[in-house]
Simulated assay, not measured.
Amino acid sequence: MKVNKNISVKQAIIRGQLMVNVPAFICLLCAPLAMFYVVHLFNLPERLGITGVFLGIILAWISWSVLITKWRIWAFTNVRNVHALKKEAILSMLIWEDGTSFEKTEYRSKKDKLILKRLDKKFLQKDLIYEDPNVPQETKIYFSITTAFFIVLFLSTGVTSGAYLMFEEKNTDFVIGLIMFTICLFILTQTFKKLINRKPQLIINDKGITLSNNTFVSWSEIYELEILREGFGNSAQHYLKFCDSNYNYSKIEIDSFNLSIRKLENNLQTYQIRYNNNNKV
C-alpha cells in the first residue's frame, strides 16, 4: 500500500463517508426499490415488497462491515494524528466505540487483524497539535437560539395535538392525548428556558474555563478533558467532560450550544496550547 503522510483527518473522514457510507446507503435504498419493482413486474403479493426493506438493511450492514475495515487500514496508515482521527470518526458516526456490539460486527480477515494490530502501535505516540490563529482571545458560548426555536415550535405542535385528542368531541383518545400533552409540555418548558437564557454557558480563554454558575477552573487544574458521545443514531448526545484538581467531574451537554462540536474541540485545544506557551518555566 502506498503511504501518503500528508493526508489530514478531515480528508480521511471525507474519504470514509464516500468509501463506506455511500455504498451502504445505496444498498439501503436500492434493495427495497428493486424488490417492489419485482413484486409489481411479476404481480406478486405486495407484502413481499416489505422484505426488500430487511434485505436492504442486511446488505447495507454487510457492505459497511467489510468496507469500514478497508478504510480503517488506509486511514490509520496514512494519517499522522491517529487519536484525533479515531475521535472524529466516532463523532461522525463512521465507526463505533471500541468494544461495542456494533464495533464487533466489522469483518476482519486474519491479514486485516495483523495489519490493525501493527497499526495500534501508532497510538503510543501523541498527536501533533497546533494553535489555530483564527481562534479569538476569548470564546463565549450560549444556547443556540435557532435550535431552541425550532424545538419549541415542534413541541408546541405536540402540545396542541395532545390537547386536541384530550378534548375532542368523541373523546376516544384521551389517554394518548394526555401522555402526548404531558411529555411535550415538560420538554417544551425545559427548551423554552434555554431559548430565553442569554447567559454564557461556557467562557473559554487561555486562562481556563468559566462554567454557567460562574465557577472558574484554570487549565492547570483541568484533567481528562474530552468530548464524549453517548447513545446511538439521532438520539446520541455529546458532552464535554473534565476533572478538576479536587477530583470533581463536570459533564456538560453541548449539543444545544451555538458552537459546533468540532469548533469547540478546536478552540479548547488552542487555548490549552496558549496557556502552556504563556506559562513556560
Score class of each variant (00 low, 15 high):
Asn4Arg: 00
Lys5Gly: 06
Ile7Leu: 09
Ile7Arg: 01
Val9Ala: 03
Ile14Pro: 09
Leu18Gly: 00
Val20Ser: 09
Phe25Asp: 12
Ile26Ser: 10
Cys30Asn: 10
Pro32Ala: 10
Pro32Met: 12
His40Tyr: 15
Pro45Phe: 05
Pro45Ser: 04
Gly52Ile: 06
Val53Ile: 14
Phe54Glu: 05
Ile62Arg: 11
Ile62Cys: 11
Val66Leu: 15
Trp71His: 15
Trp71Asn: 13
Val79Asn: 07
Asn81Val: 04
Val82Tyr: 12
His83Ile: 04
Ala84Val: 00
Leu85Pro: 12
Glu88Gly: 03
Ala89Cys: 14
Ala89Asn: 09
Ser92Glu: 09
Trp96Ser: 13
Asp98Cys: 13
Thr100Leu: 12
Thr105Tyr: 12
Glu106Met: 13
Ser109Cys: 02
Lys113Gly: 05
Lys113Arg: 15
Leu114Ala: 13
Ile115Tyr: 13
Lys117Thr: 05
Lys121His: 11
Lys121Val: 14
Phe123Asn: 03
Phe123Arg: 02
Asp132Gln: 05
Val135Pro: 00
Pro136Glu: 10
Gln137Pro: 00
Ser144Gly: 02
Phe150Arg: 04
Leu153Gln: 12
Ser156Glu: 02
Thr157Ser: 10
Ser161Cys: 08
Leu165Pro: 11
Glu169Pro: 06
Lys170Asn: 15
Asn171Val: 12
Asn171Lys: 15
Thr172Ala: 13
Phe174Leu: 12
Ile179Phe: 10
Leu185Asp: 04
Leu185Gly: 08
Thr189Ser: 15
Lys194Gly: 13
Ile196Asp: 11
Lys207Ile: 00
Gly208His: 03
Leu211Pro: 14
Trp219Ile: 01
Ser220Ile: 09
Leu225His: 02
Leu228Tyr: 06
Arg229Gln: 10
Gly231His: 05
Leu240Thr: 02
Leu240Pro: 01
Asp244Gly: 00
Asp244Glu: 02
Asp244Tyr: 04
Tyr247Cys: 14
Tyr247Met: 11
Tyr247Ser: 14
Asn248Trp: 05
Tyr249Glu: 07
Phe257Pro: 00
Leu259Asp: 02
Ile261Trp: 03
Leu264Pro: 15
Glu265Gln: 09
Glu265Cys: 04
Asn266Cys: 03
Ile273Cys: 07
Asn276Gln: 10
Asn276His: 08
Asn278Ile: 03
